[in-house]
């Protein structure tokens, strides 16, 4: 049953991501992208990472895409008919294929598939996914975590300085 469910979600994800690039209307593209994010969140839940799923929906679907939809609406971007050239199509397809081959290589040929971490399903259901992520963020990955927060702070200050003409 889980495989069937995965196949359905994966099919929707693929169809929606194709619609993101093929849709003529930018708003419909954005809506398809939101749907793709939902499918990704569902996949996270199936991988027993509910925290990641919630963050995926809150941050990507709930915040970033709202901004993108806003920009499209306020700038009133019209549909892109006739502006797509065969060069762009060719480049897009070749980069996509390259990425596919790379992913396949990484999964099959490299050592990635044989490495097993210490965290498994039993541990997640006992300790809780959020607690596990929190612990490793504040112990093993403390420095990268703090650097990210400084980066965010700089970005916030930058946004305020850029948007506010008179401080």
């Amino acid at each position: 049953m889980e495989t069937l469910f995965f196949l359905i979600v994966a099919a929707i994800a693929v169809i929606c991501s194709l619609m993101v690039v093929t849709n003529k209307n930018p708003i419909n593209s954005a809506l398809s992208l939101i749907m793709t994010f939902f499918c990704l969140a569902t996949l996270y839940v199936m991988l027993e990472a509910p925290f990641m799923a919630a963050i995926q929906v809150i941050v990507y679907a709930g915040a970033i895409m709202v901004l993108i939809v806003f920009v499209i609406m306020l700038l009133n971007i019209k549909s892109e008919a006739g502006r797509r050239t065969s060069h762009a199509l060719f480049m897009g397809i070749s980069v996509g294929l390259l990425l596919l081959v790379q992913t396949w290589y990484l999964l099959v040929k490299s050592s990635l598939s044989s490495v097993r971490g210490t965290v498994d399903s039993a541990m997640i259901s006992k300790v809780g996914h959020t607690e596990l992520i929190g612990k490793s963020l504040f112990t093993d990955f403390l420095l990268p975590f703090e650097i990210t927060s400084i980066l965010l702070l700089v970005a916030i200050v930058g946004a305020v300085v850029l948007s506010k003409k008179k401080l």
Partner: peptide, 10 residues
């Protein structure tokens, strides 16, 4: 659901 509150926020 381990993340019930986050689900509501989402």
């Amino acid at each position: 659901l381990n993340i019930g509150v986050l689900y509501i926020l989402a």
